[in-house]
Amino acid sequence: MLLDWVTVVLLIGIGLLLIVVELVFVPGTTVVGIIGFILTAIGVWIGYAALGTTIGHIILAGTVLVGALAFVYSFRSDSWSHFALKNQNRGHVNEDNPHLLEEGEVGKTVSALRPQGTALFAERHHEVQTQGEFVAPNKAIRIIRLSQNKIIVEEVS
Protein backbone atom coordinates (compact mmCIF):
# COMPACT_ATOMS: atom_id res chain seq x y z
CA MET A 1 0.00 0.00 0.00
CA LEU A 2 2.83 2.42 0.86
CA LEU A 3 4.57 1.55 -2.39
CA ASP A 4 1.36 2.39 -4.29
CA TRP A 5 1.18 5.81 -2.63
CA VAL A 6 4.86 6.51 -3.36
CA THR A 7 4.40 5.47 -6.98
CA VAL A 8 1.30 7.64 -7.44
CA VAL A 9 2.86 10.70 -5.78
CA LEU A 10 6.12 10.37 -7.75
CA LEU A 11 4.37 9.89 -11.10
CA ILE A 12 2.01 12.81 -10.54
CA GLY A 13 4.80 15.01 -9.13
CA ILE A 14 7.20 14.32 -12.00
CA GLY A 15 4.37 14.67 -14.52
CA LEU A 16 3.29 18.08 -13.18
CA LEU A 17 6.93 19.18 -13.03
CA LEU A 18 7.43 18.25 -16.68
CA ILE A 19 4.26 20.13 -17.65
CA VAL A 20 5.53 23.24 -15.84
CA VAL A 21 8.93 22.86 -17.55
CA GLU A 22 7.07 22.61 -20.87
CA LEU A 23 5.13 25.80 -20.17
CA VAL A 24 8.06 27.85 -18.90
CA PHE A 25 11.18 26.64 -20.67
CA VAL A 26 10.12 24.76 -23.81
CA PRO A 27 7.55 26.75 -25.80
CA GLY A 28 4.94 24.95 -27.87
CA THR A 29 3.63 21.43 -27.56
CA THR A 30 6.66 19.21 -27.28
CA VAL A 31 7.63 15.76 -26.06
CA VAL A 32 8.34 17.11 -22.56
CA GLY A 33 4.74 18.27 -22.04
CA ILE A 34 3.27 15.14 -23.58
CA ILE A 35 5.41 12.90 -21.35
CA GLY A 36 4.41 15.00 -18.33
CA PHE A 37 0.73 14.62 -19.17
CA ILE A 38 1.12 10.87 -19.71
CA LEU A 39 2.97 10.41 -16.40
CA THR A 40 0.31 12.39 -14.56
CA ALA A 41 -2.46 10.36 -16.18
CA ILE A 42 -0.70 7.08 -15.31
CA GLY A 43 -0.30 8.25 -11.71
CA VAL A 44 -4.01 9.02 -11.46
CA TRP A 45 -4.88 5.70 -13.14
CA ILE A 46 -2.68 3.75 -10.71
CA GLY A 47 -4.39 5.65 -7.89
CA TYR A 48 -7.78 4.42 -9.10
CA ALA A 49 -6.55 0.85 -9.76
CA ALA A 50 -4.51 0.25 -6.61
CA LEU A 51 -6.16 2.48 -4.00
CA GLY A 52 -9.83 2.35 -4.95
CA THR A 53 -12.39 4.60 -6.56
CA THR A 54 -12.88 7.00 -3.65
CA ILE A 55 -9.14 7.58 -3.19
CA GLY A 56 -8.80 7.81 -7.00
CA HIS A 57 -11.37 10.63 -7.08
CA ILE A 58 -9.48 12.42 -4.32
CA ILE A 59 -6.18 11.97 -6.17
CA LEU A 60 -7.72 13.22 -9.43
CA ALA A 61 -9.27 16.27 -7.74
CA GLY A 62 -6.01 17.01 -5.93
CA THR A 63 -3.98 16.70 -9.13
CA VAL A 64 -6.30 19.02 -11.04
CA LEU A 65 -6.32 21.49 -8.14
CA VAL A 66 -2.52 21.49 -7.73
CA GLY A 67 -2.01 21.82 -11.49
CA ALA A 68 -4.48 24.71 -11.73
CA LEU A 69 -2.97 26.46 -8.70
CA ALA A 70 0.55 26.13 -10.10
CA PHE A 71 -0.61 27.49 -13.44
CA VAL A 72 -2.50 30.45 -11.91
CA TYR A 73 0.25 31.22 -9.39
CA SER A 74 2.91 31.27 -12.10
CA PHE A 75 0.97 33.94 -13.98
CA ARG A 76 0.01 35.98 -10.92
CA SER A 77 3.47 35.97 -9.38
CA ASP A 78 4.87 37.46 -12.60
CA SER A 79 7.55 34.78 -12.65
CA TRP A 80 7.14 34.34 -16.40
CA SER A 81 8.08 37.96 -17.09
CA HIS A 82 11.74 37.00 -16.62
CA PHE A 83 11.52 35.07 -19.87
CA ALA A 84 9.87 37.83 -21.92
CA LEU A 85 11.72 40.32 -24.09
CA LYS A 86 10.79 43.81 -22.92
CA ASN A 87 13.42 46.05 -24.49
CA GLN A 88 12.96 47.64 -27.86
CA ASN A 89 15.62 48.74 -30.29
CA ARG A 90 14.77 52.29 -31.26
CA GLY A 91 17.99 53.07 -33.13
CA HIS A 92 18.07 53.92 -36.81
CA VAL A 93 20.78 53.92 -39.42
CA ASN A 94 22.44 57.30 -40.16
CA GLU A 95 20.57 59.06 -37.36
CA ASP A 96 23.44 61.20 -36.17
CA ASN A 97 23.89 64.34 -38.28
CA PRO A 98 22.35 63.24 -41.59
CA HIS A 99 22.18 66.91 -42.63
CA LEU A 100 26.01 67.05 -42.95
CA LEU A 101 25.85 65.22 -46.28
CA GLU A 102 24.65 66.76 -49.52
CA GLU A 103 23.64 65.43 -52.90
CA GLY A 104 26.59 65.29 -55.28
CA GLU A 105 29.12 64.73 -52.50
CA VAL A 106 31.83 62.21 -53.45
CA GLY A 107 33.13 59.48 -51.16
CA LYS A 108 34.68 56.02 -51.23
CA THR A 109 33.23 52.59 -50.52
CA VAL A 110 34.63 50.75 -47.53
CA SER A 111 32.78 47.51 -48.16
CA ALA A 112 31.17 46.10 -51.28
CA LEU A 113 27.74 47.58 -51.98
CA ARG A 114 25.36 44.70 -52.81
CA PRO A 115 23.31 46.97 -53.01
CA GLN A 116 23.92 48.12 -49.41
CA GLY A 117 27.18 48.61 -47.60
CA THR A 118 29.46 51.10 -45.88
CA ALA A 119 31.03 54.17 -47.42
CA LEU A 120 33.32 56.92 -46.20
CA PHE A 121 32.30 60.57 -46.62
CA ALA A 122 34.43 63.31 -45.01
CA GLU A 123 36.24 60.83 -42.73
CA ARG A 124 32.91 59.39 -41.41
CA HIS A 125 31.40 55.98 -42.08
CA HIS A 126 27.82 55.90 -43.39
CA GLU A 127 25.47 53.09 -44.37
CA VAL A 128 24.63 53.62 -48.06
CA GLN A 129 22.80 51.81 -50.81
CA THR A 130 22.83 51.77 -54.58
CA GLN A 131 19.86 51.52 -56.90
CA GLY A 132 20.51 47.81 -57.31
CA GLU A 133 23.96 47.63 -58.86
CA PHE A 134 27.08 46.12 -57.33
CA VAL A 135 29.98 48.41 -56.38
CA ALA A 136 33.31 46.92 -55.29
CA PRO A 137 35.26 48.14 -52.23
CA ASN A 138 37.56 51.19 -52.53
CA LYS A 139 35.61 52.69 -55.45
CA ALA A 140 34.61 56.33 -55.77
CA ILE A 141 30.88 56.97 -55.32
CA ARG A 142 28.60 60.00 -55.44
CA ILE A 143 25.42 60.73 -53.48
CA ILE A 144 22.52 61.00 -55.91
CA ARG A 145 19.65 61.22 -53.40
CA LEU A 146 19.08 61.69 -49.68
CA SER A 147 15.67 60.51 -48.49
CA GLN A 148 14.86 60.29 -44.78
CA ASN A 149 17.76 58.25 -43.40
CA LYS A 150 18.72 56.59 -46.68
CA ILE A 151 21.75 57.64 -48.67
CA ILE A 152 21.40 56.55 -52.30
CA VAL A 153 24.72 56.47 -54.21
CA GLU A 154 26.13 55.56 -57.61
CA GLU A 155 29.63 54.69 -58.75
CA VAL A 156 31.62 57.54 -60.22
CA SER A 157 32.92 56.53 -63.66
Rank of each mutant, 00 (worst) to 15 (best):
S111F: 07
F83W: 13
V135C: 06
N87W: 13
L3N: 10
S81P: 10
Q116D: 05
V153T: 05
L11R: 07
G67H: 01
T54L: 14
K86V: 12
S111P: 01
K86T: 15
A68I: 14
Q129V: 01
R114L: 03
V93C: 04
P115G: 03
E105W: 09
R90L: 14
K139M: 14
L120P: 02
L23A: 02
H125T: 05
Q88Y: 14
I58H: 10
V31Q: 11
F75M: 12
V135N: 06
V32K: 05
I46Y: 06
L120G: 00
E105R: 09
H126V: 08
Q116P: 04
D96A: 09
V64Q: 06
Q116G: 11
R142P: 02
V24W: 12
P115H: 07
R142W: 08
I55T: 09
G47E: 08
T30I: 04
F37G: 08
S157V: 15
A61S: 12
L146S: 00
I35L: 05
H126S: 02
E95N: 06
L65R: 01
A122Y: 13
S147C: 06
V6R: 09
Y73F: 15
A84M: 14
G13L: 01
H99N: 09
P27H: 08
V135P: 08
I59P: 06
L18F: 03
S81Y: 11
G33E: 11
S79G: 15
E123P: 06
G47T: 02
S147T: 03
N87G: 13
T53Y: 13
I143D: 02
V106A: 13
N138D: 15
G104K: 02
G117P: 02
G107F: 07
V8K: 02
H125D: 08
G47K: 00
E22K: 03
I14D: 03
M1P: 05
R124Q: 14
H82F: 14
A84P: 00
E154D: 12
H99V: 02
V6K: 07
E133A: 14
A68E: 01
H82R: 10
W80A: 15
F71G: 00
E155I: 09
L113T: 08
N89D: 15
A122C: 13
V21N: 05
A136V: 12
F134N: 13
T118D: 09
L39T: 07
